[in-house]
Design a protein around this nucleic acid. Structure first.
Lengths: 240, 240
DNA sequence: CACTGAAAAACTGTCAACAGTTTTCGCGTG
DNA sequence: CACGCGAAAACTGTTGACAGTTTTTCAGTG
């Protein structure tokens, strides 16, 4: 297993330049090396990364698509600034997509998937940092999405993937340890989801996924630390 | 009301060159002027549209994001080829997103929205071609999505918008007339959705939206005409 | 000291050109 | 006639340069 996230590189066989720039920049953004709101000028990035403006331009557009970079009306780009409201926004999309995927996965659940997921949960139990848990959580859901076999569901989910990483990362930088309570709750929640998926009932799986992802919404902002370091009350998501 | 679709142009104040190319190309693709599978070479497009390769390149990447263009492993681009399975795929995402939006819209439904939607339905009743109905249908759902006020829900929905247009367009070219039965059913379905939204019950609204969008899945492929002109049986979507 | 305004610096949009690779085409051969 | 095979054409990835515009700097002024 690779140590880096299974991030959505561009097409595999392709020229690696724009992908390299995008990967490096993505990492710098999600790790906080480039803080929210930082200016991203093409010439600076070009010399920094030792390439010309072309690839930088394309990389920035890709990161825009991933929601990590925003362009203003004049064409200038900055690292996105996310508020709790934005996180709620993202979570709505996440819940929608993961619920749909769960309903389909329930219909094609097999032992191979069970093994993958349970192995992931086992690693989660052995984790001691939020960063590790987060990485495993993302991998867990990536596996579920892929199991659904619905290509566009997956690509759409991936398009918000990085934003989740960014938000969670900003949370973790403020609070790296994880309590055994939180960990146990996380593990339990994932086990429940696996059970629901294994049950083969689409409706139950859908609801379990919604509950699971919704749990994160209720939990994450309650740490009270916004990505910009300020504290604020989370904007809430109406649950039906 | 503008005669052209309220398509997702790039940033408004921006340089219009890449947006222009993308818009023109998009129209040519969804209208079938450029059939599925057509090669799209940067130099040809550049001379055709009287610009250099740069803007063409960016426009192609944007259309890739919209799912209208695909790149192979070598970097060559073609107009996407959609199968009934792809349409089912897209519909899954659509149902997921529109259901989520409906749940949120139910909580903030007002008379302004009601007027917009009912006016749209009225125009629909007066339509005589599938093309017109489709355009109004898309506008209807765009209005609902926007009413949800969830930015990422909207942008994500927009990212599959063009693919729906492409699929429906290919269907319509094969069969331009619309029976009064189909029209009545369409209108009825939209009215039901409005009622559900107006009801203020998130769960009911969510289900109504799923039912509504799901109806299209069951209906559209049954015309039996695939975008490439062949006939085939639709791949089906498991409903929970 | 705050403020105005012009000059300078920086940045984006666009273009044309080059290098390496892939595809296409036509020719010769079995 | 089918089939390799090599040359030519075409295409993508990348670069550097130029024009127009925006932002920043800074000197001069009240």
């Amino acid at each position: 297993m690779p140590s880096s996230h299974p991030v959505a590189r561009s097409r595999p066989g392709r020229s690696t330049l724009v992908a390299e720039v995008a990967d490096r920049l993505r990492r710098e953004i999600v790790t906080g090396t480039r803080p929210a709101g930082s200016k991203l000028s093409e010439p600076s990035l070009a010399v920094e990364q030792g390439v010309s403006r072309g690839p930088v331009r394309e990389a920035l557009r890709q990161l825009e698509r991933e929601g990590l970079v925003v362009f203003d009306a004049v064409g200038r780009s900055r690292v996105v600034t996310m508020s709790a409201a934005d996180f709620a926004d993202i979570s709505i999309v996440r819940v929608a997509l993961e619920s749909a995927a769960a309903a389909h996965v329930a219909a094609c659940f097999d032992d191979r998937l069970r093994t993958t997921l349970e192995r992931n949960i086992a690693k989660m139990e052995a984790s001691r940092t939020l960063t590790d848990v987060s990485r495993l959580d993302l991998a867990f859901h990536e596996a579920v999405m892929e199991a659904s076999g619905r290509r566009r569901l997956i690509t759409t989910w991936r398009s918000i993937h990085s934003q989740l990483e960014l938000w969670l990362g900003s949370l973790h930088r403020a609070r790296e340890a994880i309590t055994s309570d939180t960990l146990a709750e996380t593990v339990r929640s994932h086990c429940l989801l696996v059970d629901a998926l294994a049950g083969g009932d689409a409706t139950r799986a859908r609801e379990a996924a919604a509950e699971h992802a919704g749990g994160l919404v209720r939990w994450a902002p309650l740490h009270g630390v916004m990505p910009d370091g300020t504290t604020g009350s989370p904007v809430f998501v109406a649950r039906s």
